[in-house]
Amino acid sequence: MSRHAFEERFFRIARWASIAFFVAITAFPLLVMLGLSFRPVSSLLNEPGRLLPRPSEIDLDGYTRILSSRDDGGFGFAGFIGNSAYIAGVTVVLSLSFGILAAYAATRLRYRGASFINAAIVLVYLFPPLVFAVPLFVMFTRLGMRPSFTAVIIIYFAYTLPLALYMLRNYFSSVPVDIEEAARIDGASRIGVIRHVVVPLSAPAIATVGIYVFMSAWDEFLFALLFLVEDRDSWTVALGINQLEANVGTPTTVLMAGCVVITIPVVVAFSLAQRFLTEGLTSGSVKD
């Protein structure tokens, strides 16, 4: 067999084996999560080697227990979802509004120090959060803002803004300016152009960035732990799963139901935005 023929055959098999391997390592944890969330904990302890639940034992008990409020004997997860949705929602609004303004300035206006300012803001995204965590913790403790959603929202805003700015800037610079100029000639103000031309034209990109910001805030753990852990009513979903496991002693299968619940919004959002998201993230990096 020549080297050519050997490689042809080898890589044809290797390709399918690789695809199978990657499907396995990504799908398996998902299956474990879903499977366990429908089983009573006794079933897990009796049969730890079973991946999917027996049809007869499937119940939604885990979901009702994790979601119902503590007064009803549950774990109050619905409240955590509300907290996370509120924090992530406000972060999205702030990050998008100011990101759009900054990205517009960066791609459409001329001013001194443009490249410095843009680079400096985007560089923030690379800064280790732990270097700011200590001083911010000290400051917000001093200000009596612990536990407080405001502190967390302000921090999330500051750390999602650079990425929002970066992605929006990439997109805005690919949108032709002709329409904006036409609107200006027709007498629209600059703010009017942003509101009535730029934002509608970039709606898909803006939605994508919004979803990305939402996912980051929904998922964030370190600052939630530092700023919200003391008050159970302020826990976010991420903090909730961790604290319920570590300190409250919640059955594994009930917590799995919680994991499924917090994963669903992320998966839905992501699948809606997947194409734009991967293009938006990678577009700056694939130039020759």
């Binding site: 474990v32 929904w218 799995m256």
Partner: peptide, 9 residues
């Protein structure tokens, strides 16, 4: 996947 969910699984 949310990191808490991934780690817990």
């Amino acid at each position: 996947l949310p990191v808490v969910a991934a780690a817990f699984v």
